[in-house]
Design a protein around this nucleic acid. Sequence first.
DNA 1: CCAGAATGGTTAATCGATGTACCAGCGGGT
DNA 2: ACCCGCTGGTACATCGATTAACCATTCTGG
Lengths: 350, 350
Amino acid sequence: MNKRLEGRAPARPTIKAVAAAAGVSTAAVSQAVNGTGRISEATRRRVLDAATELGWSPSASATALRRARTRTIALVVRRPTDVLGSDPHFSELITGLEGELAPRGYGLLLHLVADMAQESALYERLVAEGRIDGAVLTDARADDPRPDLLRGLGLPAVLLGAPDAGSPVPRVGLGQQGAGIREAVGHLLELGHRRVAYVAGPAELLHTRLRLAAFEEALAGAGLSPVAVRHSDFTERAAVDVTEELLALPGRPTALVFPNDSMAVCGIGTAQRSGLRVPDDLSVVGYDNLSLGRWVHPRLTTVDQQVQRVGAAAARTLLAGCGEDVPPPVLDGRPRLVVRESTGPVPSPT
Amino acid sequence: MNKRLEGRAPARPTIKAVAAAAGVSTAAVSQAVNGTGRISEATRRRVLDAATELGWSPSASATALRRARTRTIALVVRRPTDVLGSDPHFSELITGLEGELAPRGYGLLLHLVADMAQESALYERLVAEGRIDGAVLTDARADDPRPDLLRGLGLPAVLLGAPDAGSPVPRVGLGQQGAGIREAVGHLLELGHRRVAYVAGPAELLHTRLRLAAFEEALAGAGLSPVAVRHSDFTERAAVDVTEELLALPGRPTALVFPNDSMAVCGIGTAQRSGLRVPDDLSVVGYDNLSLGRWVHPRLTTVDQQVQRVGAAAARTLLAGCGEDVPPPVLDGRPRLVVRESTGPVPSPT
DNA sequence: CCAGAATGGTTAATCGATGTACCAGCGGGT
DNA sequence: ACCCGCTGGTACATCGATTAACCATTCTGG
């Protein structure tokens, strides 16, 4: 054993080795593996056997260079500080994406950034370096710079959110985004609630606006208006602060609607801490339908928006945009309320 | 406007374009940006200016091919089914990794697999394709095939867990893994608990064993032994089932220790549902110190193992293994108990 | 029996960047 | 004047795979 060679990475076989082993040219190997060109079934099999024999797979870098395709998709997560609150959301999304990407040999490149400026700069760099074939954009903003940016860069992308034909990049998401919130409000109204408050996400996010509009509209349909609306940054900290503030209001709301489940759980905790019982004294509605909500006490009433399925659909749309031949995604349905234990009849006024 | 060109991706500038713009050869450009070779400061600046002018960055594929380096690290998440329970853990880990990788131009390639067989196969493929420079291994097993596999493949890797000099790949983690659990048991004993049960993670995971050993040892130190020990698969579902079972035991435990915070929260919910008050009737300890635990009711007593810092250290170790010049990670400290509200004095026997 | 078309490959250029080997020019020592 | 060494660059092979263009056989039909 040569000391210098110890711990050295074993040299990977190249297409040349396979060609030599199969007794053909490298071109033949390439054609055999890719199913292009004209190769007899017999040599094709010889080549494939040689390839598996040597444990060869085409070098991703070489292929990427030649074909100008990396088979890599970017997912950039933008989080102001340490917003772990909205993360289970991303876990589900990633699960959905991976389910479609992995079988086709695509990889998911994950990046974390602090703000939109960094995010834009990152896309520019990734494109300039030719590192990715496409990008999944989350957290659509009302005035989102990314679709135009990526279109300008020529990078395929999908934006998560309600479908919209006019967008520079395709949008993928359940239709009738407001439906879940409308259903939630309907549910609360049926239970007799009249004083309902809304904890919203960051005002610049598109879904925040859509849901808030749906919320106000649904209340207005019953001749009511929100007790209060507060925007938040999705942190659990904010959930607690806002909840405390809302519960201290003169005409204390009897029901609270949150923009995600983590916040709803924290809201419940805050209410309980201040001596209120959920749902006896206060009803709480979440959003996302995380598995956590099914097991806490009380079990969380929430809106299921099928993030995982949306992720899968987004992946398919994106792959199609990358020239891949995939069945077009079917994404029917809409956000639906899941009624559990955190909502109940309005407390009788004492 | 030619119809065929509409919507076409704009051609990215190459090193040739930059060379032409600066009036030098491509070799000069390469040397200028890499700081290698012998280039006068004047031309160096001319080249750099031309590069920024054209918005050029070296093609990642070309560089990867030439240098056999991709500047990409893999993180493979293995989850049997849909274990979102342990995911906030990964969010923290990823945050820690990204903090070190991104500034050095490294990307994080994320993959999800169902089991160890798939995970091993995935590494083999990623290496065969030359897609990655290194890998972060989580969830160390007692008899883990990955260190030997990756060493055999010649791929730099780090395994998260207690440092261990004898391992085929470096291990990064807080020392004294059992310290947190020991502290937790000590805390419970001080509160007067004598009947403590332990909900463990999957038996095949190394940290499960370490923590369990620490748990039993700490109890033994007080002349006690666990009321019961149950293994689980980290799902919230399991948390509920196991909790129900433990609470139905003849000599019902007065304290429960869980392997992560999500499960602990679900355990609390289950106890509450069956009419027990936490911590009055039952004390609960979690693990991980997720932000969620700080806000639920009751606030969760848990063990902080600083996943984010461990992630940063792992990234540095890995980068060093990839030949990058990084300051060696410093990872002092140990898992520490964070006492909050979910633990209290043992209920007086009625 | 031969033009013309399949069939089944091969040769060589190419993708974009890197790095070694080489060269032109210039100043200085003798 | 001549050789040496230094500075500042250039030419070209190379990384591993893909692909257009081309060539050698064998069939096919008239």
